[in-house]
Design a protein around this nucleic acid. Structure first.
Lengths: 222, 222
DNA sequence: CGGTATCTTGACAACGATCAATGGTGGTGG
DNA sequence: CCACCACCATTGATCGTTGTCAAGATACCG
């Protein structure tokens, strides 16, 4: 079924690298285009993003695709459905990930701190997904794109500020399939934000936010 | 902010009731219209649905609402965002819930079995939400309603079968806000399914599925 | 039995999808 | 180093599904 399965990483090849406070299972560099896992694979590992960007997606037989999430530094991906993964996971921008064993989720016997961090990450994941429901079900195209950009902007800078640049390593198609839109609509809405002088583009993958207040106002749809 | 906060249940009033294998914190009967909690409340408890139906929702200031999930028997609701709830939770059909302390999520010290069940439920929740993303972002109105009915039908009967009746305790508005549609569109699609002799209605809240195969085919959109 | 909520149905408008063409960018080989 | 090519993004024109507004029918509750 998954033709490229052979390319899936074997996380154990990298030796264990202990860090400051937590006993880390392993760290692994993965490059753009590689799949960390496919839907249906045995979910032996949970990945903590250190750098780079991942893309989690589900694909229907008829080709329709939904990007479930982008994995940015600090995010944890690979939460299992039973013993299997329930999405595909592809590297969108060269990344480093910490590889945890799935059994870390069962209990804190080996490493209570990590166990709790994973459980907390799962709670945060649920919270974030609930917000994304609102976006998918109840926001119009312009609000969707504005929300997306604001979310990325807030992750990049702790204090919200205009004038910041954000890099979009993913394609327009990825963004469209994340927001429940088409490529064309994403492109048009981006053009519209540009026409309003809220953002400017330096190539399709580099966005400068000039008016974060307006962007936030559009995103939250007052 | 939450005017009706006084109506929120205090789960501790019911004495502890131990069951077969698990040390249960408490069981509580709650009736239709009651709110188990509101967004922003301190998330001291996690609820396991035994009977009845709950509704989890988020509301935007401008009144737009997204129903995040319906809680059916076996479901676990109230996963916290930090120390607070991130949705409102209202009882849609008189229910019994088992009340677990939130600290059950932290580790398995007191009750490993329950801790693991809660973590497993969180994983199942994430999986289910990923499926719902596909519905919200990539399915048309007819597919959305068919998916919704099929999901309920599958929960009601283990073996998929035509001819089963399903009770919809929630309003059309609840369904609409769950599927990212309007009341009118839900109603029209229901009428369409009726016209195709796939379902029949006996009042707005009682649906009989006559042709589960067709319904499933529409839902999965081949 | 009556009143009110909710649900259904209808007419119309609008937003986003689709189809199609153009423009831009990055990579490769001459 | 430049030219070509393939892929991706943008723009334009049109269509269709769903939302909106409005009226009528049905169900629910006192």
């Amino acid at each position: 079924m998954h033709v490229m399965l052979a390319q899936t990483v074997s996380p154990t090849v990298t030796p264990k690298i202990p860090t400051s406070s937590v006993a880390v299972s392993a760290i692994r560099r993965v490059e753009k285009g590689l799949h960390l896992y496919y839907e249906g694979d045995g979910a032996d590992f949970i990945y903590e993003v250190v750098s780079g960007v991942l893309r989690l997606e589900r694909v229907l037989e008829n080709g329709r695709r939904q990007v479930v999430a982008f994995g940015y530094p600090g995010d944890i991906v690979g939460f299992p459905a039973g013993t299997r993964y329930h999405t595909d996971c592809e590297v969108v921008a060269d990344a480093e990930v910490i590889v945890h064993r799935r059994s870390m989720l069962d209990d804190g016997r080996d490493d209570l701190r990590t166990h709790r961090r994973l459980v907390a990450a799962a709670m945060a994941e649920i919270t974030g997904m609930q917000d994304h429901f609102m976006l998918l079900g109840r926001k119009c195209a312009q609000e969707k794109l504005a929300s997306f950009l604001m979310t990325l902007a807030r992750r990049a800078t702790n204090g919200s500020s205009s004038g910041i640049q954000i890099h979009l390593p993913m394609s327009r198609g990825d963004i469209a399939d994340f927001l429940g839109l088409t490529i064309e609509t994403v492109s048009r809405q981006m053009t519209r934000l540009r026409a309003q002088n809220i953002v400017s583009l330096d190539g399709p993958h580099l966005v400068t936010i000039h008016d974060a207040d307006s962007l936030a106002r559009i995103a939250d749809a007052d």
